[in-house]
Amino acid sequence: MLNRRHIRIKVMQSMYAFKGTESDDLSKDEKFLMHSLDSMYELYLSTLALLTELSKKSKDHNEKLQKKLLSNDSDKNPNTKFQDNHLLNLISNNKMLQEHIAKRKLNFWDLDFEYVDILFKAILKSELYAEYTNDLDISFKKDKQFVIDVYTEIIAPNDKLYDYFEDKKLTWVDDLPVVNTAILKVIRKLKLTSPETLLLPELYKDEDDKDFAKDLFKKTLLNSSKFSEEIAVKTTNWDSERLASLDGVLLKMALCEFQKFPSIPYKVTINEYLDIAKEYSTPKSSLFINGVLDKIVKEYQANNLHSKTGRGLM
């Protein structure tokens, strides 16, 4: 689920929040980082819980229509395609998934039901819903495509849901794009015969990625003074305040990758931090960071320092 870009962003945030020194015990701060990374999985699970609640909402909605005192024929015989959606039922009936959600206490939609109502009403009013319920072709494929379309066009872009997640946990705002992509990827793979574990992907692609997060954080902090001195030599014409900002954190992390991660190409590191700077720092940050890192890489290569290993490495 996690990609290296998002790992770097989480490390950057933890670095920026760090208030200690190189000599401090970093275990507490490392624990904070790992908890921050794990919180993304909680967002993933709570979003699947939301899909389950929308399915329940559809059933409740139809039952209320049938019990209306002044009901018409359509109320007495409501369309049940949404509540019977095979893919949503697959998610709702996944015992392993529901156990994970319950264990972490992530089904908070009963308390915050208004957001379920907002999304449900938006779905009912949509052309997607009208086309889906009027289609006489009933199949798992059609059910899956409906959920994908609803998630892509109604749930993921909903501003009120975005604000809700931001209020619930601030870091979730940065996690949403990754989680949305992960959910759609999982849904597209789902089949009626899929194992329950398919809905519970690993947070990290492999142990190397988990180690990368820990090592990048610790090695950057432990070499912070050294990296600062090296950067200062290359930035004599720049405002010193910039080095105390997020740009300084990104530069230190990049130098850490240059020196402590020989398998990561210089070009990959530079491109990653330029993109992160464009998203999280000032308009001039990417220009500044690119200029500094370009100077440093040319110096390393001229002096045969910190060589990279592997094929096609810059």
Score class of each variant (00 low, 15 high):
Ser27Lys: 10
Leu97Gly: 00
Lys67Gly: 08
Asp24Gly: 01
Leu199Trp: 01
Lys168Met: 11
Gly20Glu: 02
Ser240Tyr: 06
Glu153Cys: 12
Ser58His: 07
Leu45Asp: 01
Tyr266Cys: 04
Ser71Ala: 15
Ala254Glu: 12
Asp167Pro: 00
Asp25Trp: 07
Gly20Asp: 04
Thr220Arg: 01
Ser245His: 04
Asp215Tyr: 13
Ser245Thr: 01
Glu153Thr: 06
His35Cys: 06
Ala49Thr: 08
Val116Arg: 14
Met34His: 12
Tyr162Ile: 02
Val179Tyr: 11
Lys214Asn: 08
Ile9His: 00
Ile118Lys: 15
Glu127Tyr: 08
Leu136Gln: 12
Asp84Cys: 12
Gln98Met: 13
Asp84Leu: 12
Ile91Gln: 01
Asp149Leu: 04
Leu2Lys: 15
Val178Trp: 02
Tyr204Gln: 10
His86Asp: 13
Asn223Tyr: 10
Lys218Arg: 09
Trp238Val: 11
Glu131Thr: 08
Lys31Gly: 12
Lys68Ala: 10
Lys298Gly: 10
Phe140Thr: 05
Thr181Leu: 15
Asp206Pro: 09
Leu45Cys: 08
Thr52Phe: 01
Ser27Trp: 05
Ile289Pro: 02
Tyr129Thr: 00
Leu170Thr: 11
Tyr204Pro: 06
Ser281Arg: 05
Asp38Tyr: 13
Leu45Pro: 03
Ile289Phe: 05
Gly310Asn: 05
Ala213Cys: 04
Phe113Gly: 07
Thr282Asp: 12
Tyr273Asp: 06
Ile154Pro: 01
Pro157Thr: 13
Lys219Pro: 01
Leu255Lys: 03
Gln98Arg: 11
Ser55Trp: 03
Lys210Ala: 10
Leu274Gln: 08
Ser194Cys: 01
Lys31Ser: 13
Phe288Ile: 09
Asn303Tyr: 02
Asn107Pro: 00
Leu87Tyr: 04
Ser307Arg: 09
Lys19Pro: 02
Glu202Ile: 08
Glu230Tyr: 12
Glu229Arg: 13
Ser263Arg: 06
Ala302Asp: 14
Thr309Cys: 02
Thr282His: 11
Leu198Arg: 08
Asn290Thr: 05
Asp143Glu: 06
Leu90Thr: 06
Asp117Val: 14
Ile118Asp: 11
Arg4Cys: 07
Ile154Arg: 00
His61Ala: 09
Glu299Thr: 09
Val179Pro: 11
Leu124His: 05
Thr236Gly: 05
Lys81Cys: 03
Leu198Cys: 06
Asp174Ala: 02
Ile231Gly: 06
His61Tyr: 15
Ser194Trp: 02
Gln13Leu: 15
Gly310Cys: 07
Asp60Glu: 13
Glu166Asn: 13
Gln13Val: 14
Asp167Asn: 14
His6Thr: 11
Glu241Asn: 14
Val233Met: 13
Pro262Trp: 01
Asn290His: 13
Lys185Cys: 01
Leu250Asp: 00
Phe258Tyr: 13
Val179Phe: 08
Lys308Gly: 07
Leu221Lys: 02
Leu65Val: 02
Asn237Asp: 13
Leu305Ala: 04
Ala17Asp: 15
His61Asn: 07
Gln259Arg: 08
Met1Trp: 02
Asn77Pro: 10
Lys169Pro: 07
Phe113Asn: 07
Asp149Tyr: 00
Pro262Val: 04
Asp159Ser: 14
Trp109Leu: 09
Asp167Cys: 03
Phe113Pro: 00
Gln301Lys: 15
Thr220Tyr: 00
Ser58Tyr: 02
His61Cys: 01
Arg8Phe: 09
Thr47Met: 15
Asn93Ser: 03
Glu202Lys: 07
Ala277Cys: 03
Lys252Cys: 15
Thr152His: 03
Glu131Gly: 10
